[in-house]
């Protein structure tokens, strides 16, 4: 899967987890938590659940640090999806 649909799906999951966030202007290399006000651990959990549902992928907790940035999410998902 190329990175554009992955990126779109990640942003959609993020938008659903943090309803009022402006996800259109994220710096891909900065931590999501630093760019989104009120992005707490429950929002993050909802975000990971959104990714899990969208890609039908089990995401173990030990991989969570790789999901800290938008670029990290895309890299991680590309690798995981290519491997299956």
């Amino acid at each position: 899967m190329s990175d554009t649909p992955i990126r779109d799906t990640v942003l959609r999951a993020l938008g659903e987890a943090v309803p009022d966030a402006d996800v259109g202007h994220l710096d891909p290399d900065r931590r999501l938590r630093d760019q989104l006000d009120y992005f707490d651990s429950i929002d993050f959990l909802n975000f990971v659940e959104g990714l899990h549902k969208a890609f039908n992928l089990d995401i173990p907790e030990r991989d969570y640090p790789q999901l800290a940035t938008l670029a990290g999410c895309i890299d991680y998902l590309q690798t995981r999806l290519a491997a299956r």
Binding site: S41, I42, L45, V48, E49, H52, D58, I59, P60, E61, R62
Partner: peptide, 17 residues
């Protein structure tokens, strides 16, 4: 928590809080 969450699906995990 880590051990417990490793056994759980994404939708059933606990937070330290």
């Amino acid at each position: 928590l880590e051990e417990e969450n490793a056994r759980r699906p994404v939708t059933g995990r606990l937070l330290a809080g």
